[in-house]
Simulated assay, not measured.
Amino acid sequence: MSHDQTYEDVTVGETRSFGEYEVTREEILRFAGQYDPQPFHVDEEAAESSMFGGLVASGWHTAAMTMRMLVDGELNESGALGAVGVDELRWPNPVRPGDTLSIETEVLEKEPFREGIGLVHSRTVTTNDDGETVMSMVGRVLFPMG
């Protein structure tokens, strides 16, 4: 992908796999302490007796880590203008300290948005190093029309 990529350059059905994000205990505690201070995100003792059986990352933290991988692995090298939303956000499995995350993207569909701009629906699936899905979403990303 290049910075001058246009809506017309995006191919429905295209898939890409990339990213490697190592999740640390310290980052889980820091993010949750600031943004999602529920006991199973910030208190290891409380997390042990929770349904998770140990410390887990906030889903919003998982989304932020996913976004970092998307920017580094795809968006900064594309012609993307930004996004207008996310559909179907899911966190089917928890993220734990020591996990290494990666992502796969698939272009699902595309449609005109407004004059000179197209909308691309792209599914992103984030997995841990055991191959379990920890997050999925459909991004609604804008591209310039050529």
Rank of each mutant, 00 (worst) to 15 (best):
E111P: 00
G54I: 08
D129A: 09
E48M: 03
E111V: 09
P94D: 06
A63G: 15
G33V: 12
S122N: 13
G146M: 05
R123F: 05
R96L: 14
E45Q: 11
W60R: 08
G79V: 15
V12A: 14
V84W: 01
E45M: 00
G53F: 00
E22A: 03
Q5E: 15
F31W: 04
F52R: 06
V12Q: 12
M69S: 12
E14N: 04
G139K: 00
E111Q: 12
L89T: 14
M135H: 09
Y21A: 11
P97V: 12
F31S: 06
P94M: 01
F143N: 10
G54E: 01
T6H: 08
S2W: 07
E27C: 01
T62N: 03
V84E: 11
N128G: 04
V71S: 01
R16S: 13
P37I: 03
P37A: 04
P94K: 03
M135R: 03
E104S: 07
M137A: 15
E106L: 10
G33D: 13
V138N: 07
D99W: 00
L142R: 07
S49Q: 05
E109C: 04
T127Y: 03
A57K: 01
G13S: 13
E106V: 12
T105I: 15
V125Q: 01
G131K: 13
M69A: 13
P144W: 06
V84D: 04
F40H: 14
P94I: 01
Y21V: 13
E106D: 11
E115G: 10
H41Y: 01
E26Y: 05
G13I: 12
N93P: 07
D130M: 07
S102E: 06
R90K: 15
V56K: 02
V120M: 12
D43H: 00
V56H: 02
V86G: 08
F143Q: 13
M51P: 02
T126F: 06
R90F: 01
V125Y: 00
F143H: 12
F31R: 02
D72V: 15
R96W: 09
T127F: 08
L70N: 03
E115R: 07
V71Y: 06
Y35S: 00
P94C: 02
G146C: 02
F52A: 06
E14H: 13
A80C: 15
M137G: 03
V95D: 12
P94E: 01
E26A: 14
G116D: 12
A47T: 11
E22I: 09
G53R: 02
T105E: 08
G54R: 02
E8C: 02
M1Q: 14
S17N: 05
T62E: 05
I117D: 02
L75Q: 09
